[in-house]
């Protein structure tokens, strides 16, 4: 507890609740994208997942910011999401980007922005950073690519052929992925912020 003395039991429970909701958003995002893109490009699903997560989870994140305006909440949520990746069939190292992004987002929101509800710009910025944490699962694409390349080599394809094949795929996909994520998260942030300020101010939902 030493590090997060600012958080009380109440805050920790709130973090758990909103993390569960965030996780569900991630599940839905993954399901939806798999449904749409999965059949076309197996494995590439994870490129669009972060954008979808960003689009869906805005209200959850914004409400967490409102409920726990103290340092630690967002970091813990990032760590929890990372832990989930660790044990849930994603690549274990996806843990690291989530935890790091969570920490950075937390710094933006609660250290720079001091959890001030008036600082909308910073809050949206921190949400963008947090959403990039969900890029972690894209990493296995690299392993999948390696396995794919290995199987191509096994079939006697030349290295040149393989290089040509992948030079088209990696860089543009990467940039597209970043852009799509950015747009998704931005839309989600504005939507979430609007929803929270519309429905959850004036002490509504106070326990």
């Amino acid at each position: 507890m030493r590090k997060f003395t600012g958080l009380r039991t109440k805050d920790l429970i709130n973090v758990g609740i909103y993390s569960a909701l965030y996780f569900i958003c991630m599940g839905i995002a993954e399901g939806l994208t798999t449904l749409i893109t999965g059949l076309l490009f197996p494995g590439f699903t994870s490129i669009f997942v972060p954008a979808m997560v960003g689009l869906l989870a805005g209200p959850v994140y914004m409400l967490l910011c409102q409920k726990v305006p103290r340092f630690g909440a967002i970091t813990i949520m990032g760590v929890l999401m990372g832990l989930f990746f660790l044990i849930s069939g994603h690549f274990a190292f996806a843990f690291i980007p989530y935890a790091v992004c969570g920490f950075l987002a937390d710094v933006i929101q609660t250290v720079v922005g001091q959890g001030d509800p008036q600082k909308k710009g910073l809050r949206i910025g921190s949400y963008l950073v947090f959403t990039f944490g969900s890029l972690g699962p894209v990493l296995p694409l690299w392993f999948m690519k390696n396995a794919y390349v290995a199987s191509l080599v096994k079939r006697g394809k030349s290295q040149d052929y393989i290089n040509v094949l992948f030079s088209h795929i990696t860089l543009p996909t990467f940039i597209a992925c970043i852009l799509v994520t950015l747009v998704g998260a931005l839309v989600g942030a504005y939507f979430g912020d609007k929803l929270v300020s519309k429905h959850f101010t004036s002490g509504a939902g106070r326990g």
């Binding site: 758990g16 569900i24 832990l83």
Partner: peptide
């Protein structure tokens, strides 16, 4: 693993069925 991870994690599992 510290308590500040364990409490939210238990709540998380507890809350899924409710969602």
């Amino acid at each position: 693993v510290p308590q500040w991870i364990i409490i939210p994690l238990s709540v998380l599992f507890r809350f899924f069925p409710t969602i």
